[in-house]
């Protein structure tokens, strides 16, 4: 019996890795773009033969919409709403820090002239609280807020 317990304990060393995996979240706000958490080492080991990637990746060459409410006032295209919905957390981080690739790409998509980009960044950093006005903010509303800050500062 004692031997059995010791053996079980030694196998428990392996099972330490066990942790759950769950499905892909969907939505248009902060924290919605998180992919499934890390799988267990064991399931990953099996996944190695299939180049395991997140399921349901599609041939999105023509799909523009993300199912998120578009902004009402700003002249937009589907790609912008989709981009903001998919990158909101990183956009928020870049905006608070005053620079970053996600923010640069946003400026590009909103046609901010390149000599206004620094102004764009600093205006959004200063007005972070009013741009990300509430926790549940979604892509469309965020774009409107960004656009109104940019327009108030004569950036776009």
């Amino acid at each position: 019996m004692k031997k059995l317990i010791v053996s079980i304990v030694s196998f428990a060393a392996v099972l330490l890795f066990a942790s759950g995996a769950s499905a892909h979240n969907q939505g248009c706000g902060l924290g919605d773009q998180v992919f499934p958490g890390a799988d267990t080492v064991l399931t990953q080991l099996f996944a190695i033969t299939t180049n395991g990637t997140f399921a349901n990746q599609t041939f999105g060459i023509t799909s523009g919409t993300s199912g998120c409410v578009p902004p009402r006032s700003f002249v937009f295209n589907d790609d912008l709403t989709k981009y903001v919905a998919s990158n909101m957390d990183n956009i928020a981080k870049d905006m608070a820090q005053g620079n970053g690739e996600s923010l640069e790409t946003l400026a590009e998509m909103m046609d901010v002239p390149s000599n206004n980009r620094l102004m764009f960044n600093s205006a959004l950093q200063t007005n972070f609280s009013s741009v990300f006005s509430h926790e549940g903010i979604e892509a469309g509303e965020l774009i409107e807020n960004i656009a109104s800050v940019a327009q108030n500062h004569h950036i776009i």
Binding site: G29, L30, G31, D89, A92, K93, M95, A96, Q97, G98, N99, S122, Q125, T126, F128, S129, F132, E135, G136
Partner: peptide, 20 residues
């Protein structure tokens, strides 16, 4: 909790402004 903490962290960070 994540949304709440993430945003309050970033609001503080935005308020510090300036260069990175």
């Amino acid at each position: 909790d994540y949304q709440n903490l993430f945003l309050s962290t970033l609001k503080l960070r935005g308020a510090l402004g300036g260069d990175p």
